[in-house]
Amino acid sequence: MMYLNSMQQALRSALLQQAEEAFSEKPDLAGVVHGRRRITQGARGKRTALFPSRKNDLTVALESQIEAAFCLLLERDPEVTGYRCQSLEIELGLGESYISDFLFQTRAGSWEVKEIKPSRAHLNDDTRVRLAKVNALLTQSGFGFSVGDLTNMPGPIELENLFALYQRSSIRPWSHQECDLALAQLHKLPQPRMLGAWYVHLHDAGLSPLLADHLLFHGLATANLKRALRLDMQVGVPV
Score class of each variant (00 low, 15 high):
A223E: 01
Q18T: 10
Q8N: 09
V129Q: 12
L229C: 09
A164R: 10
P27A: 00
K133F: 03
F104N: 11
R84C: 02
I157N: 00
Q234A: 12
I116S: 00
M194C: 09
D77C: 04
S110I: 04
M153G: 00
S97E: 11
L159W: 08
K226H: 13
E158S: 08
V33N: 02
G236Q: 06
M153F: 14
A43G: 09
V237Y: 11
R172K: 08
R12W: 01
S208R: 06
R168I: 12
E75C: 07
S53Y: 15
T81I: 13
P52F: 15
E158Y: 08
A121T: 09
I116P: 02
F143A: 08
G148W: 14
V113F: 05
A184H: 14
S100I: 13
Q17D: 12
A49N: 02
W174L: 00
E89A: 05
N56M: 15
D28N: 11
L50Q: 03
L138H: 07
L162Q: 10
H201M: 07
A121N: 08
A69H: 14
A136W: 03
I90S: 01
S13R: 13
R130M: 08
G109E: 05
F23S: 03
L207M: 07
E178H: 04
R38W: 15
T81H: 02
E21L: 14
H176T: 08
M2H: 14
Q234Y: 05
A132F: 09
T81A: 06
R76K: 15
L103Y: 05
L229R: 10
S24G: 11
A182H: 07
L202N: 03
Q234R: 06
N152H: 14
C85V: 14
T139C: 10
Q167E: 14
V129W: 07
F102Y: 05
Y199E: 04
P192L: 01
V237P: 02
D57W: 11
E25C: 04
A132N: 13
K133C: 04
S6V: 15
S87K: 10
A69C: 10
A228E: 15
K188Y: 02
W198K: 04
L231E: 14
T40D: 06
L11M: 07
L162Y: 13
E21R: 15
C71P: 06
L183H: 00
D149H: 13
R37L: 10
T48C: 06
D77W: 00
S24L: 11
S13Q: 15
Q86G: 01
P238W: 14
D204Y: 08
Q65K: 13
P173D: 04
L74H: 04
Y3G: 06
G109I: 00
G219C: 06
V113E: 03
K133L: 11
A184S: 15
L207C: 00
R54P: 04
R193W: 04
K188N: 01
W174C: 03
